[in-house]
Simulated assay, not measured.
Amino acid sequence: MKVLCLHGKGTSGTIFRSQISTFRAKLPDDVQFDFINGPFKSDPAAGIDLFYGPPYYSFWENDSVDAIRATHSWLNEHIAKNGPYDIALMFSQGCVLGSSMLLFHQEETPHLPPPFKAAIFICGGASLSVLEEMGFHVSAAARERDIASRSALALQAGSSAVLERGADRWTGLKSLSGGLSEDQLRNEIASPYRIDVPTVHIYGSKDPRYAAGVHLSGICELEKRRTYDHGGGHEIPRTAAVSNSIAELFQWAVAQVDTSN
């Protein structure tokens, strides 16, 4: 079982390895993880330099559809040389990369095997610009929340918030949530089709980007997806309960891949 690991913006493959170490220790030894760095040097993600030193990387320098597509070409070259991969395990910006690759593959090259057979998304959403280019209808409320959540994440994840409030810094984005259920959030994006490989969606209800994670689950096939709210912020909690749950979901994804072979 070979796993491609895609980190968040302003971190690195080495940092991602550390971030998932607790639940990864609960997995079988025969799972191979490939932690890669994005192609662009980057400033550190908000607050990350308190815990990890440089270098830091990003998968693109701006969020345009053209920039994301260019990174697809870069990653496809990596997969051709180092793959194939059974599963992609992604965090934050890595989720944007992986989800857009699966969507464009489904639209443009469905006769070819997908870049990976299953996907695990942690604290990440899809690119709304990519979705709109592909004919998805994104509601004005989803757009407004997406913009506000990015600013809120920078504040809640920042160094001063970490030092002043610790874990209490995660307060989500209550001002725009409106008390919507997960199903209501999923209905904010109308999908002409859905990602059809097995998917796992792990997000935290106190993460300002929580709705983005729920939205991403909504553009994946219901019968092939599993979701889990770890209850925290934009992070991978290392408690035993969360680690056990993520490990179980990972094993579910492995079983889906094994069944399809």
Rank of each mutant, 00 (worst) to 15 (best):
M1N: 11
V3P: 02
L4Q: 02
G13A: 08
T14S: 15
R17E: 06
S21V: 10
T22N: 13
F23E: 03
D29T: 08
Q32T: 05
D34T: 15
I36A: 02
K41P: 13
D43N: 14
P44F: 06
G47C: 14
I48C: 04
Y52G: 01
G53E: 12
P55W: 08
P55Y: 15
Y57Q: 01
Y57E: 01
E61V: 11
E61K: 14
A67W: 04
A70M: 03
T71Q: 08
S73K: 10
W74E: 09
L75K: 14
H78E: 07
N82V: 12
A88H: 03
G98T: 09
M101S: 04
M101F: 05
L103P: 01
H105S: 01
E108L: 15
P110F: 14
H111Y: 07
F121W: 07
L128N: 07
V130T: 12
L131I: 01
M134H: 09
M134F: 10
A140V: 05
A141I: 09
E144W: 13
S149D: 15
S149R: 11
L153F: 06
S160N: 03
A161G: 03
E164W: 05
G166P: 06
G166L: 04
R169P: 05
R169V: 09
R169K: 07
R169F: 13
G172A: 13
L173N: 12
L173F: 13
G179T: 15
L180V: 07
E182H: 10
Q184T: 12
E188P: 02
I189H: 05
I189M: 07
S191P: 12
D196R: 04
V197H: 00
V200T: 02
H201K: 09
H201Y: 10
Y203V: 12
R209W: 05
A212S: 12
E221C: 01
L222M: 09
L222D: 10
Y228I: 03
Y228M: 02
H230C: 06
G232L: 07
G233R: 09
E235D: 08
R238C: 05
A241M: 13
A241L: 09
S243Q: 06
S243L: 10
A247T: 06
L249C: 03
L249I: 08
F250G: 00
Q251L: 12
V257P: 00
N261L: 12
